[in-house]
Write a protein that binds this DNA or RNA. Structure first.
Lengths: 128, 128
DNA sequence: TCTTGACTTGGAGTGCACTCCATATGTTAA
DNA sequence: TTAACATATGGAGTGCACTCCAAGTCAAGA
């Protein structure tokens, strides 16, 4: 697959795809004789993984380390697992923060909806 | 309350507190005759709100707009509600992405735990 | 073969959200 | 009053994650 095809398939810019490869967030991609990238199934798997992890805010740094470990074979299984467990912990914390914010947003939206009827919010705190 | 007290209470740096005020993410804080900040209950309410929203990744830009609207009184009730609804929608989308990533992490961690017993991961995709 | 468009690289630039710094002024205990 | 420390301001610097650009190379159709 060409970079254009992969870019469209995963909705990631070509610049970002090259960037991810350059920094080692995904392993080096196969090339044609001419030097053009030729993405394999496996490359695509890495890109899909990168996209998923990044969409949840997993830091680039952690993904680079994971990729480096993965390329060192089965002896890094424990290290990789620990890395993932650590990121999962952070992710769960972030999700809790978001849940709290969501509750607050729901509460405030509810108050605003009631205020739209009366036209005033004065019985509430100014920043409610 | 002094900036030091507020900083400790909410675990936000003094620099960040001043920054938030400067950019209008919170309304101007009261001052003593000497020009030092003297945070009121209301200021603290804004700071708490800012902290909560920022912890969930709500962009600074949206919070500045919300703060500006709030200072214009009851006629901005609908605008404020719409702003909050929009941010809630984005937040829910982000939470869904995170849920997907969490599922993937759980799946992979499970695979790694099984691989730790056997010592090999070869029956799985390299990036699993 | 030639032209057009896609692709390459290294490096510079961008946007966001802080974070740090220099210099000046306010506050408080001795 | 004076030393020591807290706080003020405006502006520069940082870290992260892209994003853009220039200059050159490769590939495919007329």
């Amino acid at each position: 697959m060409t970079i254009t095809e992969v870019s469209k398939k995963y909705d990631i810019s070509q610049d970002t795809l090259r960037y991810y490869e350059r920094i080692g967030l995904i392993p080096a991609v196969n090339r044609t004789k001419g030097g053009m990238r030729d993405y394999t199934e496996e490359s695509c798997g890495w890109i899909e993984l990168a996209k998923c992890m990044r969409s949840a805010g997993i830091p680039i740094e952690a993904l680079i380390e994971y990729c480096a470990l993965a390329q060192q074979g089965d002896r890094t299984i424990t290290a990789r697992k620990e890395l993932l467990v650590e990121e999962r912990t952070k992710l769960l914390e972030k999700m809790e923060d978001m849940k709290k914010t969501l509750d607050k947003l729901n509460y405030k939206i509810d108050i605003y909806e009631k205020a739209e009827v009366s036209g005033v919010l004065s019985w509430e705190k100014p920043n409610a």
